[in-house]
Nucleic acid binder design. Sequence first.
RNA 1: GCACCGGUGGCGAAGUGGCUAACGCGCAGGUCUGCAAAACCUGUACUCGCGGGUUCGAAACCCGCCCGGUGCUCCA
Length: 492
Amino acid sequence: MTLHLFNTLTGQMDDLVPADGKALRMYACGPTVYDYGHIGNFRTFLQIDILRRTLKLLGVPVQHVMNITDVDDKIIRNATAAGIPIGQYTERFEKAFLEDLDSLRIQRPEQLARATEHIPRMVELIQKLAENGAAYQAEDGSWYFRLASFPEYGKLSKKDLSGMEDGARVDVDEYEKDSARDFALWKAAKPGETSWDTAIGRGRPGWHIECSAMAMEYLGDSFDLHAGGEDLMFPHHENEIAQSESVTHKPFARHWMHVRFLLVDGRKMSKSEGNFYTLRDLLLKGYKASAIRLALVSVPYRHQLNFTFDGLTEATNAIERLRTFHQRLVAGTFADGESDSLQAAAKKARAEYGSALSNDLNTAEARAPIFDLVRTANTALDQGLLLAGDRVAILAVLASFDSVFDVIEDRDAEPTRRALAWAEESGRLDDVAPELLAAQSLTDEAIDALVAERTLAKKQRNFGRADQIRNELAEKGVVIEDSKDGVRWKRK
RNA sequence: GCACCGGUGGCGAAGUGGCUAACGCGCAGGUCUGCAAAACCUGUACUCGCGGGUUCGAAACCCGCCCGGUGCUCCA
């Protein structure tokens, strides 16, 4: 099976396959590390994670490069305000970002590339552009890309800029450009700002050049896929194409993928609207990392996702259903053999799941056959008709599902613990949901002891005491389930 | 203003010409249970924003309208 993925460049569904027949070479625009990542950032990174995991599911090896933008206007401004070097400023946000990736179970790219570590490569590119007449230096020493030198400009975002007039929007500090739409490749040093002394003068890179430089450094002049948020399509990606292709005269990326923005409560998320959430905000409210992952991943990447707390609750409950079922299979004992109907159901689920994902990463559609299988298997389980061979087949389907969605295996304790530690050391304990603190106050050992006491009380038919213990635990978010195989408990 | 996307049950959401309109959550009733929980069963849109049209046949295609969102500037 091959992945059919919408290609922004061609405007149609194209098969995404490695041009060299080996690994799929992809570049994804990463974060600018000037603050903690918000859920909008993570929706994009999560959808790219779904992409790379789907490729692997389909047997395609991936060579994935992501940049970390660790120098830009905001970083310089904030670091200056804090009175520290930019490296020291970005370090903690980069660390936080990588932790957040772990929390959401987003796989690390094969290569992370920091902008500040690739300055020579960028300078080289700008020099080549200058030789081709595609770049020029302004009086203050800044370098700009000459848009007029690249007639194909606009081919990605389908913009026709030929009729646009110059002078509509000119940044005050960029008045020396030949044409208003020319964009900065290199910004001349201003007094007191971080800068690099290079062959093209003292200064710092413009935003777009870093991606061209690092993509070509690790993936070559031409590569398979370039991905990012929809906002980057114009002008960022358009500029990358112009810069890169003006140097190489080869197609930059063959395939472009853009993830749509998410909305929060029906509005674009913004700090001024008061609907702005970082991952850490949500963890401290008591939502599990897996629920956040599933909620952000369940709406296909080309659709707007309206993020709500109801949606998080829905995801929490859906995961609970999957995990409970998984646990039934893992813990139970089954007679030898296999049943035709369940084997067929497992096979069908796997096929439908794979084909939904291959169809432009339709995650919503991909969930359906898995839940179908859960219901079918639960019914068989209730009737004692599920056999050992069925268990193996169904667990394999769940594993395959989790190789992309990664929500069944419960690793939620760590992100929450990390978020609480962070809240403590950064003085944000007031933001922590009281129920979360209450739940944390109870150790597993304490729960086991109470559960044991309740079981004893039940044996003595002292249901009053048994129910009292159950209620106490429930208040702290611990749910008890009695079953034939014994008592189970879980943190809600 | 120009451009693009969407409007499917209580909520989320799939489906882009033809099987009883997936799936999840929620809700109601039932089975099981000391009671619960979990699980299962049944029900939960005779209908897909509105009005026309095309077609043997449309949620799906065309036209018009209404509503919501996004982009055109830094942004994932």
